[in-house]
């Protein structure tokens, strides 16, 4: 809006800022790097798991895993742990510094979550304004971010149980860390199924996560990167 006016009267030069997009480029890049890393880690993790299974009945068929041999699956796993960790760290700093987390995901109230569930059950849940996450969305995003953090820690423990023995102590034993890592994988897989299904139900959210989405007056304060778009 502000931009339209500015252009209209021709008075304000390109230094005038437009409100940032709902998902600035940085968020979009981080989201898709994360999605690729998480999926590659899960698929290669399944192949690694197959060599010493935790649940006797659960065995992942080669056709749904990444890496035809355990050694290749391990190589993929130890490749994608880097983008997952670095990208995730940058996202956590970004979300804190720009205030995105506080604006979009907190506070979460029980009342808000119940309201979302009620509206969903009575088919009254509105998707008109995708700039605001509802109670369930907030809970799911904060939840999955927390689980991914725990997943990184349990992963580091399995990678270096001796060098990081202080971290191993958090889990008690190496085998406990394996179980935590396995449960984390299951929860993240569950999240992805629900998350992707919901996104497909409201396709404009996917468009927004690709192109940036609507301008958001209360968007992330990334003044430095946004300035250039006004030129």
């Amino acid at each position: 809006m502000r931009t339209k006016l500015a252009q209209g009267n021709g008075m304000v030069k390109s230094t005038q800022r437009q409100p940032p997009r709902l998902h600035p480029l940085a968020v979009r890049l981080m989201h898709w790097i994360n999605a690729l890393s998480v999926i590659a880690l899960i698929l290669s993790g399944w192949k690694i798991y197959d060599d010493a299974v935790i649940l006797g009945w659960l065995h992942f068929d080669d056709s749904i895993t990444l890496g035809g041999h355990p050694e290749t699956a391990l190589q993929w796993h130890f490749l994608f742990m880097w983008p997952l960790m670095l990208n995730g760290l940058i996202y956590l700093i970004y979300g804190t510094v720009t205030g995105r987390f506080m604006r979009k995901m907190f506070p979460i109230s029980i009342g808000e979550i119940i309201a979302t569930i009620r509206e969903t059950l009575s088919f009254k849940l509105s998707h008109d304004d995708i700039r605001h996450y509802n109670g369930v969305q907030k809970l799911m995003y904060v939840g999955v971010i927390a689980i991914v953090i725990i997943q990184v820690i349990s992963g580091l423990v399995m990678w270096k149980p001796i060098q990081f023995s202080e971290l191993t102590a958090l889990f008690g034993t190496f085998q406990n860390a394996r179980i935590v890592h396995f449960v984390g994988m299951a929860l993240i897989s569950g999240f992805i199924c629900v998350h992707v299904a919901l996104a497909l139900l409201v396709p404009k959210t996917i468009v927004a996560m690709v192109t940036g989405g609507p301008r958001d007056e209360a968007g992330d304060d990334t003044s430095h990167s946004q300035q250039s778009t006004a030129h």
């Binding site: 197959d50 060599d51 010493a52 299974v53 935790i54 085998q175």
Partner: peptide, 11 residues
């Protein structure tokens, strides 16, 4: 929790 070995090459 039992750890079962399937087609293990190390064991």
């Amino acid at each position: 929790m039992t750890i079962k070995l399937l087609g293990s090459r190390f064991r």
